[in-house]
């Protein structure tokens, strides 16, 4: 669970975006099986997501393309986003 990459040039893992914030997906990392699944759910580069719930080491709840999806902590780190400013 270590080695969570931190903000690098505005890019950050989805798992480190706080609840209530919005972000735009920039990259999906991981194996083909995993990426194919999240792509189908709408986590494509350019898509906007809203983080609904994000506590500690638990799963993350996000809204993407009008639906709510729960991602495990690991999965949330594989999706690289650019956090949008408030408002």
């Amino acid at each position: 669970m270590d080695g969570i990459p931190h903000s690098q040039g505005g890019l950050t893992p989805l798992g480190s975006v706080p609840a209530g914030a919005r972000a735009v997906i920039r990259e999906v990392r991981g194996g083909r099986g995993f990426t194919a699944r999240v792509l189908a759910l709408g986590f494509t580069p350019g898509a906007e997501v809203t983080v609904m719930q994000n506590f500690g080491r638990g799963p993350v709840l996000v809204e993407v393309r009008q639906s709510r999806v729960a991602l495990g902590r690991w999965e949330s780190i594989k999706i690289i986003v650019e956090q949008l400013p408030e408002g």
């Binding site: 995993f34 699944r37 999240v38 759910l41 799963p59 709840l61 639906s67 709510r68 999806v69 729960a70 991602l71 495990g72 690991w74 999965e75």
Partner: peptide, 11 residues
């Protein structure tokens, strides 16, 4: 070994 948790939360 890790397995992925990806689950839709219906309305």
């Amino acid at each position: 070994e890790h397995s992925a948790f990806i689950m839709e939360m219906p309305l």
